[in-house]
Design a binder for these strands. Structure first.
Lengths: 213, 213
DNA sequence: GGGCTTATTTATCAAATGATAAATAGCTTT
DNA sequence: AAAGCTATTTATCATTTGATAAATAAGCCC
């Protein structure tokens, strides 16, 4: 028995898809902590494999990073968010509160937030596309539902209303940044933040007209 | 005349302090764009000097980065902001609007914002200290002045009120992130964002008590 | 159990990077 | 105009890094 207690067998062979997934998952964890400039060698070391193995699964480091993006942004996006926001069988206030609880459960995660900030600074346009998704699938629906709820003639969201929704949304988001990135806000404040932010949203949108066009 | 048209004299000697400042200024610009992992060689190239020269002015790259931090965070912080917020000869609403215009003029700069985000992700505690500065010199004064203005018994800011101020502040800040980092919001929205955010602040703080203790 | 497929490792490269030591030259002083 | 100080460059190192090619071995199939 030359095998020491905590060492694995020299080689553990994984099925192609399993190894590939393992690389991506560990890359999310590692890059989220250390940034995308970190080395592929250290990443491999954390998986207990050698660095060249990576290149049997991804043509280049950039390709791995691209996989990280889609795994984090695309896979964690819940399509039901959009439908929930439109579900008029539920009171609007409840809908919005339920949505923001669910949304922040996903987004107020250290790895998600750090990957998001890192990739944004890298200038990849995936962030811009993500913000567009937020606009189209979250903010515009919210504004429209508020307009509908207020019994307005024009349901369509005006740019001003969308901007207002952005500011409220940003306030919630940034409270996540403070607690998750800077450890500078207790995460228990989440519900309080969501509630007061939604009050604000209703109050502000109440003063602003929808788009008459 | 061996000198070509656009080339400088082979060596341009600068006074110690001038060269040092030039390094820091260019480092702010360069690191803001490319991140702190970028090379000292490229930085030197952009200044038209060689890379080892850097090490006559800074013991290490980390020391240069530290200078970048203090130059950006400390030097651009205006001490008069705190006094402006306390200046009761001016109507509170005007004070807050004036302050946020001045503050965002400084902070909604591409280099400031990117340096802030980069350094935050690096985990240096300078960001935490900056957030504390915002809390102590901006948010608490604002909440206290609002309490005073409302004729309240207890002027002192409660934690809940401070959290509310954070959310509003974060909404404004994040609108800067969207326009400056993601080019995803017209910067002209600034005044609108400030005005509606301040309305929100007054409305929300109006509902919340100060600290009775 | 022998053979085949392919996951994994070993060996290696070339380029980039932070940093140091010694040589050079611009500017001031006298 | 010579001397001297020091800002700047040249030369160089040791590491680190992304990537490739060839050798090895784990596990499935017949």
């Amino acid at each position: 028995m030359t095998q020491t207690a905590d060492s694995q067998p020299k080689r553990q062979r994984l099925a192609f898809e399993d190894r590939r997934r393992a690389f991506i998952e560990k890359a999310i964890e590692y890059f989220a902590e250390e940034g995308f400039e970190s080395s592929t060698r250290e990443l491999a070391r954390r998986l207990g494999v050698t660095q060249p193995l990576l290149y049997r699964y991804f043509p280049s480091k950039e390709d791995l990073i691209a996989e990280v993006y889609t795994t984090v942004y695309v896979n964690r996006w819940r399509e039901e968010w959009a439908t929930l926001l439109r579900d008029r069988s539920m009171p609007l206030r409840d809908r919005l509160e339920t949505f923001y609880r669910a949304y922040t459960d996903v987004v107020f995660q250290r790895d998600w937030m750090r990957i998001f900030l890192f990739s944004g600074l890298k200038g990849v346009d995936i962030n811009r596309r993500y913000l567009e998704l937020v606009r189209e699938r979250i903010l515009i629906p919210i504004v429209e539902e508020v307009n509908f709820d207020a019994g307005r003639d024009h349901i369509a969201a005006s740019e001003q209303q969308i901007e207002t929704a952005w500011v409220v949304h940003g306030g919630i988001f940034y409270s996540g940044v403070r607690s998750v990135i800077y450890d500078a806000a207790p995460i228990e404040n989440k519900d309080f933040v969501i509630r007061t932010s939604l009050e604000t949203l209703f109050a502000q949108l109440g003063k602003q007209d929808g788009d008459a066009d």
